[in-house]
Amino acid sequence: MLITGEHARPHVPWIVGCLVAAAGALGWFLVESVGQSAWPSGGSKVGLALGVAAGLICLFEFLLWPRKKLRTWRIGPVQWWLRAHIWLGLLVVPLAVLHSGFRLGGPLSAATMVVLVIVIVSGVWGLAMQQFLPSRMLDLVPGETIVSQIPHLSGLAARDGARLVAAVCGDQSTDDDDDGELATHLVVGAVRQVGALQGRVLLTSAAPSEPVPESESLRAFFEGSARPYLLSGKAGCPGLAGERAARAWFLEVRAGLPPAAHPAVAALEDLCSQRRQWDRQAWLHGWLHAWLLVHLPLSVLLMALLAAHVVWALMYTTHPIPFIH
């Protein structure tokens, strides 16, 4: 979620609210600590109140996860929830620190605090990534697609390339799409799917009307390098992963082929370039979402630790709890 520049306006009430709450908490904490020899502990009036507030906020923060799963529930737009998640999540830090009285406490409290900090930092990291990576993706990957579809599209690109090479070098095998599976149902109506066909039709114009003599080297290049690259990216053929190196390689391939095969080479180069963009997209996508691998599991762990901390504090604390006693 963008929080900078012109997008900051909806965040302003939250920022102000959280700053006021944090300042209020700090003020109360300082007032309570006047005349005390040590900072108020988590069991003190102010400490407990701030701890309860921080715990409830953590619970609310955690509820974003189920909220995002209940997509059709009309309980406020998710962006509102996320905005609250960001700023209340940051508010937890001062509340938790004040609750702790600037002490790490026992192993459970310390572990809870450490996990909280990691969760917060990972969230801030994710938020920071969201500030610039979408724009970078927009600039660097003009041929962007749906990231989960990259393997499928790569397969289609490899198949298109194979057909092109077969048209240039002469067909050696028929690549039938029929998978021979048993029918599971009968269909009534038009099975055709209508959708954008952009980019899939252009290749046919690159194919020559009849095989080009002395073009076997193209098949060798395709089978040995281009197809693995189209299917697996850099892992398939590192030599085609770099833009400059690939351009040089394709120049070399073109030089070894008759001119009639050059349009096909250009089309293959385009396919490889497309694949390079998808690799870049997958890499950027990874950075954009990798923080969730830390944030989500540790949030679950945090909730567990928090629950244990609450139980432990209520049941086994040696300090008197002002509201109970």
Partner: peptide, 26 residues
């Protein structure tokens, strides 16, 4: 039975498009 499907702006729910409602990033 093949049937065509298209966006109905979630008229079958409450008329608020779920796609927009569920977008966390505005």
């Amino acid at each position: 039975q093949q049937k065509a499907t298209m966006c109905d702006l979630c008229a079958s729910l409450d008329g608020t498009p779920s796609c927009v409602y569920a977008c966390p990033h505005d």
